[in-house]
């Protein structure tokens, strides 16, 4: 089965998380979360396996970060920061993030793979995959429109669906 093959190859990227999901319940078969610098490698794996790209999109998790219970030491980050290395670790889970979701699908059998990655909301940058899948070009442009996510190496990140003078990103929360 192609899912096992993808799983094996993705495991070599040491993904943040990988989950086999039930198609009937979720609509996809494999859910892989990689670090932002691994998206090109992940796309290359999907490309070699013969998958086509269905969509690229984003999710702004600002509200999730707000809803999460504050860490006990969180108030201290407003004041002076102790030089200890532990502070950065503790602040990380509540720092708002954005997610970029890549949907891959294959025509020859039933296997839909979701590759996702999280990037910091205040500096949303990750490499483009349009050199692997030229079809990603438009999807990334759209994601840039809606979320302001910067795809480094993308040749033309100008407003696409939005007006050409648009200076806002409508799908950002809050």
């Amino acid at each position: 089965m192609i899912r096992d093959k993808i799983k094996k190859e993705m495991a070599a990227l040491s993904p943040v998380a990988m989950l086999e999901t039930e198609h009937a319940a979720k609509g996809y078969d494999l859910d892989v979360r990689v670090s932002p610098d691994q998206v090109v490698a992940a796309a290359e794996i999907m490309d070699r396996a013969g998958f086509f790209i269905e969509a690229v999109t984003g999710v702004d998790w600002l509200l999730e970060a707000k809803a999460a219970p504050p860490k006990p030491k969180a108030p201290s980050e407003a004041g002076e920061q102790p030089e200890g290395g532990g502070a950065a670790e503790e602040a990380a889970p509540t720092a708002p993030e954005m997610e970029v979701v890549y949907d891959f699908n294959i025509a020859s059998e039933l296997c839909r793979v979701v590759v996702r990655t999280r990037i910091p909301r205040d500096n949303p940058e990750l490499p483009t995959i349009q050199q692997v899948y030229p079809g990603a070009n438009w999807h990334e442009r759209e994601t840039h429109d809606f979320f302001g996510i910067k795809f480094v190496g993308h040749p033309n990140l100008t407003p696409f669906l939005l007006p050409e003078d648009a200076d806002f990103h409508p799908l950002l929360k809050g």
Binding site: E54, V101, L171
Partner: peptide, 30 residues
Amino acid sequence: FYQAVEAARGSFGVRLVSDGTNTPYRLKLR
């Protein structure tokens, strides 16, 4: 959740991210 259907022009997909409330948290229309 993801659901694809065959529309007249091809695969129409809905990615629905729910946060447990009565409105979608994110609705991607492919």
